[in-house]
Every structure is written in C-alpha cells, then in structure tokens.
Amino acid sequence: MPSLYPHAKGISYALKDKGIDMAVASRSPTPDIAKIFLDKLEIQPMFVAREIFSSWIHKTEHFQIIHRRTGVPFNSMLFFDDEDRSIDAVKNAYCSPLF
C-alpha cells in the first residue's frame, strides 16, 4: 500500500485551501499504477494537472504541458524532483541567471 510522509497530506490540503495550485509531473514505466496510487492516497483531486507518462520525455516537456493547461507562468512554479538531471534541466530552461 502506498503511503505519504506523515504531514504531507495535511500540508497539501493546506496549500489547496490557500488557493495554491499543485501539479504532478512524473515519468513512470507504469503510469496506470501511479494514477491508482494517487487515488489510494486520496490526493488526486488536489492537483490541477496530472502529467504521468510512460515515455521518458524530458521534464521540461512536463512543464510546457502544465503551463499550457493551467496558464501558470514558469517563474511562479516551484519544482521538486529526486533526479539532479531533471532539476538541472528545468533550472536551465526556466530560471533566470540569478539562480
């Protein structure tokens, strides 16, 4: 059974209650299972966009899709990832040179 860190659900609901839009962007060899996990965790409705793909598209493509779907400017997005290469790719594509 999937699980979240102890305070993750409460923090996510608090962000949603404050009107902060959240999205999921993931590359997974089993996107159907990933979506089922979001359902089981009861957090799927929190996200304005769920971009979960089985292909290994570049993370910047996820950002482009989320931007088109939500209209949120890139400089207003906050990004977390567990892969340095994805963080670097997004930072290089969308962050100002000051970062």
Rank of each mutant, 00 (worst) to 15 (best):
V48W: 00
P2Q: 13
R69S: 12
A49W: 00
V24G: 05
Y13H: 09
K91S: 06
P31L: 01
I57Y: 02
W56R: 12
D39K: 13
S55Q: 12
M77K: 01
I43T: 13
I36A: 12
F99H: 14
I11D: 12
F47I: 02
A23K: 01
I57A: 02
V24P: 04
S12M: 15
A34F: 05
I20C: 00
D21R: 00
K91T: 06
L98W: 03
K91Q: 14
S28P: 10
E83S: 13
P45V: 03
F53L: 14
L78N: 01
K59T: 02
R27H: 10
K16M: 11
G10L: 13
T30L: 00
I20T: 08
K59H: 04
I20D: 03
K35H: 03
I11C: 15
I20E: 02
D17V: 09
W56Q: 09
M46P: 00
C95E: 12
Y13Q: 10
T70W: 00
M46W: 00
F74V: 08
Y94V: 09
S12L: 14
L4Q: 11
S76L: 08
G19P: 10
R50T: 07
R50S: 03
S86F: 08
F63M: 15
D88T: 15
R27F: 04
T30K: 06
S3I: 05
E51I: 04
P45D: 14
A25S: 10
S86M: 11
S3M: 10
R68H: 01
D21E: 12
F63C: 09
M22G: 10
D81R: 03
S55R: 09
L4T: 10
I66P: 02
L38Q: 03
I57L: 10
D32P: 00
F53A: 13
D32I: 15
G10A: 15
D82C: 14
K9D: 09
L4K: 06
A93M: 13
P31Q: 06
L98V: 07
F37K: 14
M46G: 00
R69E: 06
K91V: 07
F79Q: 05
